[in-house]
Nucleic acid binder design. Sequence first.
DNA 1: CGTGAAAACATGTAACA
DNA 2: TGTTACATGTTTTCACG
Lengths: 158, 158
Amino acid sequence: MSMELDKLDRRILAILQKDARRPAELMGADVGLSASAVQRRIARMREEAVITAEVALVDPKQAGRPLTMIVDVEVERERPELLASLKQWIAAEPCIQEAWYVTGAGDYVLIVVARDVDDFEALMQRLVVDNANVRRFQTRVALSTLKRGMFVPMDISP
Amino acid sequence: MSMELDKLDRRILAILQKDARRPAELMGADVGLSASAVQRRIARMREEAVITAEVALVDPKQAGRPLTMIVDVEVERERPELLASLKQWIAAEPCIQEAWYVTGAGDYVLIVVARDVDDFEALMQRLVVDNANVRRFQTRVALSTLKRGMFVPMDISP
DNA sequence: CGTGAAAACATGTAACA
DNA sequence: TGTTACATGTTTTCACG
């Protein structure tokens, strides 16, 4: 289940998190390994779900989703039976890219991408209508995106 | 610069955002196109930076970064000359995965991954020491991650 | 002009020592 | 693990609508 990542694994992961298409031969040259050794390690890490996916990143603006919102949602903690359906609702909603349950008064934080303000408001409307335990929410508009990614830092010194 | 995405492009993007390794021949079967036509469209979208990258996603827990924090940072707006260096600081800090400038009183929102609480506090210490314009910050701990991704929804009906 | 078919090419995969 | 041979996927070329 859990696996040990050595220094070479971590260096390979650091590369793959920036460019999953980089040929194994080049990565081998980077880290001092043969191409097949690199491939074996990658296959192992996919198997062990250290690598969970390999995906293309799309520019939201060019794809017609220029708006990003950060939404704090407050939920009634008295009704835990409704939480499961809220989670399903969030999972099924493609505009919601990220969602965390966070410390605080029954709060969730959502990252939402939308076509425009109307699109976003319609989503929030549905959020409260479909989920009776949503008490209120507060929206912040992302005026600029300084950084975006899911890069997990790798310790490559030891 | 800007490019028109037709229905087929969008369907291909929807697939690639979930699995960038899917063979072009299978994608062609999915959308009703030959493998080479699919490849050409992908190459074009890479060229036009609709596809900004193809990356591996790594499980933070297995990589030794089990903690996620959502940090609201309040910055003194009176000193705009310090904003550039703050942006550079954020860009250079690998623990900060995402950063937005948002509506509100000079606020930034950061998504931070950390090894442990000490690791996180050391980062925040450096944030305030290195950036004189950081007035204060508020941290929320992600108790559970319901959803994580950068999938941009695609309208595939029209 | 974009598409599909078949070529050449590069890459990934699976055997071997 | 590295090297080799093999299978798979990608890129290019070209004729067609």
